[in-house]
Simulated scan of single mutants.
Amino acid sequence: MKTYFPFIIAALILTVASCGSKDDLEAKKENLESKKKEAAALRTSIEALEKEIAEMDPDFARENRKSVLVSTINSKLGQFDHYIEVTGSVLSKKNVSISGEVSGRVQEINAVEGMQVKAGQVLARVDAESILRNIEEVEKQMELARTIFEKQERLWNQQIGTEIQYLEAKNRIESLEKNLASLKTQESRTLIRAPFSGTVETVTIRLGELVQPGTPLFQFVGDSDLFIEADVSERHIGIVSRGDSVDISFPSINETFKTKVSAVGSIINPNNRTFKVEVFLPRMQNVKPNMISVLKIKDYENEAAVTVPNYLILQDTKGDYVFLVKDGKSEKRYVQRGKTYREETEITEGLDGTEVLVDKGFREVGDGFSVNIAQQ
């Protein structure tokens, strides 16, 4: 019996201690919950008092407003360029439709679409059999006419015969010579040749097809004398002029270069209120007619312009404004806009280029708000 007694005493002590600790924990939890309710009630009371005082004292409201976390950006002072951006299309002064000049059946087609050819190269051949027969007939008539003329000339030199006979023989041979030259010209036109070096864009005839004078045979584009044509709004009249510098870009081939305005139209299109602008295009390997391009024509520049990002400029009934950071507070500053190009706007009044502007968080502040600048 003595052996087990100490163990029983120890077990009883542990049981009492555990019960005591559990009761103490529950009491602390209840006390914490009570304190939280008291704190919530006190916080609600404080907020209500602050609101009432703020309505009665605006200075108190500004001093006790919570700081807003913002980031900042500096206004810029320097070169500002404004460009007119329009879309243009590459054209060629040597974009022609080659048509038939004589009647006949197509006997040979030497060109295919996309083929590069040289000036004078034969593209197709039209049947010339009827013309050749006429040439043979005229040549035989010329042999007889030449013989008659030679004999008549000898007689006339001997004062035999009349002058009328001599002149008729001479006129006959000259008329046949002109007729023969005309037929040979027609024969040469049965060969359809490239008028200049370039590319065959389309072939609109088929082998064996009967063609007439004026029938379209090929669409042909020269590989030189390319230019860009664009429509510019009439509000830019007097701004864009011949010789102005132009930045050209081709989105499809990712190439850019500088060139000049070569011509400015003098007529306004009544349908879209634009005028034509022509830009010189140097020879480039990958540039093709009808390719789309983007033209940037500089119409304004200021070497000492104050600029800010577009998105920072807000507006109310009084005008445009931005928020500055000054002495730890935000300041509402009204400004006068100038020109805008892409993401930047010129400020003509209100800023001098040394200001620190509210960037991120600019929509959460007001005039006189306390701000906390985030470290970037």
Rank of each mutant, 00 (worst) to 15 (best):
L226M: 02
D81E: 11
K276T: 15
S266C: 07
A111Y: 07
G328C: 03
V279Q: 02
R273V: 08
T307F: 10
F60W: 02
F7G: 04
E150P: 04
D225H: 05
V335L: 10
S370A: 12
D299K: 04
E364V: 02
G104T: 07
V232A: 00
T259F: 08
L176N: 02
G198R: 02
G20V: 13
T317K: 08
Q315I: 15
T87N: 13
V277P: 00
A48S: 12
K36Q: 13
V240S: 01
I135W: 08
E278P: 02
V117Q: 03
S45F: 10
F7M: 03
N302S: 00
G265R: 06
F227W: 12
F218G: 02
F220M: 05
G78I: 09
G353S: 08
K76Q: 08
N290P: 04
T3W: 10
G222W: 15
N110S: 04
Q219A: 13
S67A: 08
E349L: 06
P216Y: 11
V306I: 14
E349K: 12
A194E: 04
V264G: 00
V221M: 03
S249E: 02
S266G: 13
V126A: 03
V277E: 03
I84R: 00
G366C: 11
F227K: 07
A128G: 10
I267Y: 13
L42A: 05
N310S: 07
N290F: 12
L167G: 05
E349I: 11
K360E: 15
A181W: 11
S266A: 12
N64F: 13
S266M: 14
F149D: 05
K332I: 11
K296S: 05
A39M: 15
K93I: 10
R125S: 07
L167T: 15
E255P: 09
A169H: 00
E177A: 04
D127L: 01
S21Q: 13
L14Q: 06
N290G: 04
E143H: 00
R273S: 04
S67G: 01
L69Y: 14
C19F: 14
G361P: 12
F149M: 05
S233E: 07
Y321N: 06
F5M: 09
F362Q: 09
K76Y: 09
F362E: 09
S182Y: 15
R342T: 15
I253T: 12
K260F: 14
S293Q: 05
S34Y: 10
D81G: 03
A41G: 09
S245Q: 03
E139A: 01
G368M: 00
T256M: 09
Q141F: 01
Q219H: 15
S45H: 14
K51M: 03
E33W: 03
A119I: 00
K94P: 04
I173N: 06
S103L: 12
Q336N: 12
I53L: 06
G88D: 06
Y311M: 05
L167E: 15
S175P: 14
I297V: 05
S18H: 10
L183G: 01
R133H: 12
E163F: 08
L207A: 06
L32K: 04
L281K: 06
A111V: 06
L314Y: 05
G328F: 11
I313M: 08
I267A: 08
V211C: 02
K28H: 14
D23P: 11
